[in-house]
Structure formats: C-alpha cells, structure tokens
C-alpha cells in the first residue's frame, strides 16, 4: 500500500458517501444515471468474487464488501425508494455497446484463460467505461447540481490516483499490471473534459454548465 493508492481508495469511498448524501438529502436521484450505477454493481460483483477464494487483508476484504453492498443499496434507492425521481427518458445510453466489447477484450486480454480471470479482466474494462452513460446524460442535460459534480470528481480522482500508484509500484516492486494500467488510463482520460469544467467553473464558485 502506498499513499497514492490509499488516497485513491479514500476518494472512491468519499464518492459513494457523496452520492448517498445527495440522494438522501435531496430525496431524489435526479441527474444520476441508473445505467452507470447498474454497471458498477456488475463491475464489483465480477471483480470481487475472489473474496470467497483469496484472502489479501482485512482492509481489502472490508473495502470489497463495502463496494458491493453500497452499489446494490444505491440501485435499491434509485429503483425502489426514490423511483419517481428517476427520469429514464434522459438515461438512454445503450449499455450493450459497452458490455459486448468489454467481454471481447476480456477474452483476448487476461492473465489466465479461466472463468475467474476472464471475469476479472471484464470488470477492469467495464469499470473504465461504466461512467459513459452518466457523462452522456450530463452532456444531454448540459448542467448538473454541484453535489453531483463533486461525486463525479471524487470518482474520477480515484482511478487517476491509481496511476501514480502504478508508477510507484513499477519502481519499488518492478511489476506492472498492463491490463489494469491500460484500462485505468482510458478511465481517467474519459474524465478529462469533465475535470476541465469542474476546475474552471464549479471550484470557482460557478454552476456546472456545459457550453451549448
């Protein structure tokens, strides 16, 4: 564990608490893509199935359980508790276009051709693009509540912080994980436009609005 990865994990935790806070205080999931949240459930279940056959540390297991449980809880909040506040007509990104290529990538790029490893690789690729329905929705509405942008910033910062962690691990342990690194760079890249607007507008006290 190094400081970059730890801060990345904290940022990931923070993003989930921000999202829960947004849904519960506004009693609404307006502006949040259900499709993106559903993809995260798939990502976490596919990746963290190893909970049952590989023990790394208490930290590792606790975080995995938290990410599985919280992502399922968010789906419950969106689909049942605050269902009327979700507008499916603006959440229209076709997730098949993400699932199918990720499955193909996982079948080609994996560290061992077995069920668990292909599933792991699938979850890594899917995580990289799972934010697209959310960003697509943001693009369509052209604006977002401040709290939603803080959620996205924390979520984007999480994988961005993993990049210095991988550089650090390369120099200290002499190891690279090319699948995670490639997907992580793609994932961070998808946030660049968002980060630009976040830093130049939201953090300067303005509303998040995309140019028309």
């Amino acid at each position: 564990m190094n400081i970059f990865r730890f801060l990345g994990d904290l940022s990931h935790l923070a993003s989930i608490f921000i999202l829960l806070h947004k849904i519960q205080t506004t009693r609404s999931c307006r502006g949040i893509s259900f499709r993106t949240q559903a993809l995260y459930v798939v990502v976490f279940i596919a990746r963290y199935l190893d909970l049952f056959f590989r023990y790394v540390s208490l930290y590792n297991s606790a975080m995995k359980l938290f990410f599985i449980a919280s992502s399922c809880y968010i789906l419950y909040l969106m689909k049942i508790r605050y269902r009327p506040t979700h507008d499916p007509s603006i959440d229209t990104f076709r997730v098949e276009y993400l699932l199918a290529p990720c499955l193909i990538l996982a079948l080609i790029f994996n560290y061992k051709f077995n069920f668990a490893e292909v599933l792991w690789s699938f979850s890594i690729w899917l995580e990289a693009v799972a934010i697209l329905p959310q960003l697509f929705m943001l693009q369509r509405t052209g604006e977002a509540e401040n709290i939603t942008t803080h959620y996205l910033a924390a979520l984007g910062a999480y994988r961005a912080l993993y990049i210095p962690n991988w550089i650090y691990r390369y120099f200290t342990e002499g190891l690279v994980d090319p699948i995670a690194v490639t997907a992580g760079i793609v994932q961070t890249g998808l946030y660049l436009d968002f980060f630009y607007v976040y830093f130049t507008k939201v953090l300067q006290g303005q509303k998040f609005e995309l140019p028309a």
Binding site: M1, R5, D9, H12, D50, R54, V56, S57, N60, M63, K64, F67, Y111, K112, W120, Y162, R169, L175, V176, D177, P178, I179, A180
Partner: peptide, 10 residues
C-alpha cells in the same frame, strides 16, 4: 508462471 496482476488492488 508469474502473474503480473496486482491481486491486492481494489
């Protein structure tokens, strides 16, 4: 075989 994968990452 040596796995390149970081099994300890989330």
């Amino acid at each position: 075989s040596v796995s390149l994968k970081f099994h300890d990452e989330l």
